[in-house]
Amino acid sequence: MSTKNLIIAFGGVSPEHEVSVLSAIQAISSMENSQYNLVPLYISKSGKWFTGNQLLELETYKDLSLLEENALQCAFVKDDIGRTHLKQQNSSGLFSKPKSYPVYAVVCAFHGSGGENGAFQGICDFFNVPYTGSDVLASSLGMDKVKAKQVCVANDIPVTDSLDFYESNWETDQETIIKEAEILGYPLIVKPCSLGSSIGVAKATSKDELINAVEMAFRYDAHLLIEEAVHPLMEINCSVLGTAQECRASVCEKPLGTTETLSFKDKYQSGEGADKGMASADRVIPADISSELTEEIRELAIRTFKTFGASGVARLDFLVNAETEQVYFNEINTIPGSFSFYLWDKSDISFKQLIDELIEIAIQNHQQKNGRVQSYETNLLNEKAVKGIKGLKGIKN
C-alpha cells in the first residue's frame, strides 16, 4: 500500500460530541505534514457517517445541519481480496466515481457513549482494521463508572465508598436509596454511570439537593452512581502511554476550577483558547505536590492502566484528600480529551510524536491479534450436512 490512509474517526451520538470534534481537529492539525493521507470519518449526532476534505477544518462544524447537507456519506466495505476501505456512498458529479480509501489505521477521537465505550472499537475489530486506544473490553469497562470501581476494589486500588442504582429502582424505592446515600454522609457526588466531561455530575449537601441532582442525572443515563465526597479535595491527573505489558506515566497535573468539583465549563470553556478542548483548561503542570505524592500517583496510574488492560494513551484521574494525602481512583479516560498531549508535551513528547506512537501501538496490537489462529479447521458442517437437519436435533447446548 503506497499511500497510507489514516482515518480520523470522531463525533458520534454522545453529549460529548463537540469535545470529540475539538480533539480530532487538534490531532489532524498535528499530522498535517506527516506521511499519512488524512481521511476524516465524522459521525453526526444522528449517527450518519460522513467524509470529505471540508471535515478537516474546524470552521465546517459551525453549522452541523449544513454540514450534513454538503458532506459525503461513507461506510466501511470489504474489497475482493478482503481489505477494508472507507468508501464514499455518493459523489458530487454525474460521471464521477465515489472515492474509496484502503484503511491503514484508524485514530479514534471519540468521547463518551457510542465511541469511547467500545462500540466503535467493535466495528473496527469486525472489519479487522488497526485502531488507536484500548480494545472493546477495556473501553467498555473504563466508560462504566460502576464496573470500573468494582474492578478497582477487586485489585486493591483505592476508591471512595459509593452506591449505584437504576431509574426503575428510584421510581419504586426512592426513600431507601436516599437513606443508604445519607449513610455515606453529605456532601455527596451524583454521577451518570456512563458519561464523561463532568456532564450531569452534581454535588449535593442536603436531601433536596440530592433529589434534584438525581433527577438531573437521569436525563443522561438510566444508571447512576452516588459517591461520598472527598474533602478538602485536590484533583490530580496523570496520563499513561503504552500497552498493558509495557507503559510509562507522564507528569502529573492539578486542574483548577471554579468549584471544588470540576464542571464541563471548567474543563472546556475556561482559560485562553477554549476551542482547544482540554488543552485550554486552567491547570498546574507539573502539579505542585510533593515528589513522594507524585510518584505514588504515577505508580498507581500505571498499575490501574495495566489492571484495565488499557492500550494507547489514557488519562487516569485521582481524588486526593488535601490534608491526609489519601489517594482515590476516580476514573480512567481511555480516549482523553486532546489525547492529553499537554501532559506529554511536558514530558518532551510532541503531539505529532504522540499520535505516531499511538498508531505504532495500534499496528503492533493488530499484528499480534492476526498472528493468532483465526479459525478452527473442521468438517463439522460437512458431517452435519450428511446427516441432514434431523441430525442437529441431537446437539445439546
Results as ranks from 00 to 15, higher is better:
residue 384 K to S: 11
residue 197 S to G: 11
residue 258 T to L: 14
residue 366 H to M: 05
residue 328 Y to R: 08
residue 54 Q to F: 07
residue 252 C to D: 05
residue 9 A to C: 10
residue 383 E to A: 10
residue 43 I to K: 07
residue 143 M to P: 08
residue 211 I to P: 04
residue 39 V to D: 02
residue 165 F to N: 06
residue 295 E to L: 05
residue 296 E to T: 07
residue 363 I to F: 04
residue 14 S to K: 10
residue 321 N to P: 09
residue 396 K to C: 09
residue 319 L to G: 01
residue 342 Y to K: 04
residue 360 E to G: 09
residue 62 K to P: 00
residue 24 A to Y: 00
residue 392 L to W: 01
residue 94 L to S: 02
residue 232 P to D: 02
residue 251 V to W: 13
residue 279 A to D: 10
residue 260 E to V: 07
residue 58 L to W: 02
residue 28 I to A: 13
residue 151 V to S: 04
residue 128 N to R: 13
residue 52 G to A: 05
residue 116 E to G: 09
residue 235 E to C: 00
residue 322 A to E: 07
residue 250 S to Y: 11
residue 182 E to W: 10
residue 120 F to W: 08
residue 109 A to L: 14
residue 309 G to F: 05
residue 347 S to E: 13
residue 27 A to Q: 04
residue 2 S to Y: 08
residue 151 V to P: 03
residue 24 A to C: 00
residue 297 I to N: 04
residue 145 K to C: 01
residue 93 G to L: 10
residue 305 F to A: 08
residue 70 N to V: 15
residue 339 F to Q: 06
residue 334 T to K: 04
residue 204 A to M: 06
residue 104 Y to C: 00
residue 7 I to K: 12
residue 274 A to D: 02
residue 9 A to E: 04
residue 230 V to Y: 09
residue 248 R to M: 15
residue 65 S to W: 08
residue 197 S to D: 07
residue 377 E to D: 14
residue 238 C to V: 08
residue 341 F to P: 01
residue 232 P to K: 02
residue 181 A to G: 12
residue 370 N to G: 09
residue 88 Q to M: 15
residue 198 S to Q: 10
residue 33 N to V: 04
